[in-house]
């Protein structure tokens, strides 16, 4: 993971990998005719074993299967709800894809509501489809997000915050009153706190965090908390 090669669109990427294992290339990379790997956007080359991809400050979300996203309900029809998840097209969510939903017993979703859902189909030629249940038919946290506040960040930051090794939210939450947070892979974050001030604090803290490296996190949190107590 420590490689820090900066790639620009069209750059040829030289990939050193262990022999014998299959090479997997992820977002931002493409194999061209001459069997060379070419980058398609600007970013940092990252690798994990034999998996390579480019990390950039992209903001446009491209739906992909089994990712958890936050969407905004845009229109309702008899069977489905159209949802904006930040992709080029609206996603559709069936009224039956909620816990305990039947044809008679529809969940209560208003236009403008926020929904935390899982992407069921994320195909480049098809409308994305969402569900609010897991494989066992349980909600397990998915569904309508009531109250709180939602804001947008870049996709890379969302992935960083969601990765298990990231300590930022864990450390931050030890020092401030409890709050609820949901991070969507589409770069949307929903937070619910007990006061407006805390929400604004978290909103600014997360936005500023996008420019802070992993090793500076501890110092950054210290400064944030000092700033917060001064503000209060």
């Amino acid at each position: 993971m420590l490689e820090s090669i900066v790639a620009l669109p069209g750059d040829e990427i030289e990939i050193r990998r262990k022999e014998g294992k299959e090479l997997v290339i992820g977002p931002g990379l493409r194999k061209d005719n001459q069997n060379t790997i070419v980058s398609m956007k600007c970013g940092l080359l990252k690798k994990k074993e034999n998996f390579f991809w480019l990390e950039s400050h992209q903001k446009r979300y491209v739906p992909s299967r089994n990712e958890y996203v936050i969407g905004i309900a845009v229109t309702k029809s008899a069977e489905t709800i159209k949802i904006d998840i930040g992709s080029s097209e609206y996603a559709s969510l069936s009224f039956l894809a909620f816990e305990n939903a039947t044809k008679r017993n529809k969940p209560n979703v208003e236009i403008g509501d926020l929904l935390y859902c899982r992407v069921l189909t994320g195909n480049k030629d098809m409308e994305p489809e969402l569900v609010c249940i897991d494989a066992a038919g349980k909600a397990s946290g998915l569904g309508v997000l009531k109250d709180g506040f939602m804001f947008k960040i870049n996709l890379e930051l969302a992935r960083r915050l969601l990765s298990g090794s990231n300590q930022f939210l864990r450390e931050l939450s030890k020092n401030i009153p409890p709050f609820e947070i949901t991070i969507g892979m589409n770069g949307r974050i929903w937070i619910k706190t007990s006061s407006c001030k805390q929400t604004i604090f978290l909103f600014q803290a997360i936005n500023q965090y996008s420019n802070v490296s992993e090793s500076d996190t501890e110092n950054f949190i210290k400064n944030l908390l000092k700033d917060y107590s001064d503000w209060e």
């Binding site: 905004i72 904006d84 403008g112 926020l114 709180g148 001030k197 600014q204």
Partner: peptide, 27 residues
């Protein structure tokens, strides 16, 4: 491209924060 729709949560929060004289950028 179309505009990103406004969610009820965002709207409610902006109004609620204004009741406390607060804005998102702390102005």
């Amino acid at each position: 491209m179309r505009e990103v729709p406004l969610s009820l949560a965002e709207y409610d929060f902006v109004i609620k924060a204004l009741q406390d004289n607060l804005r998102l950028d702390r102005r």
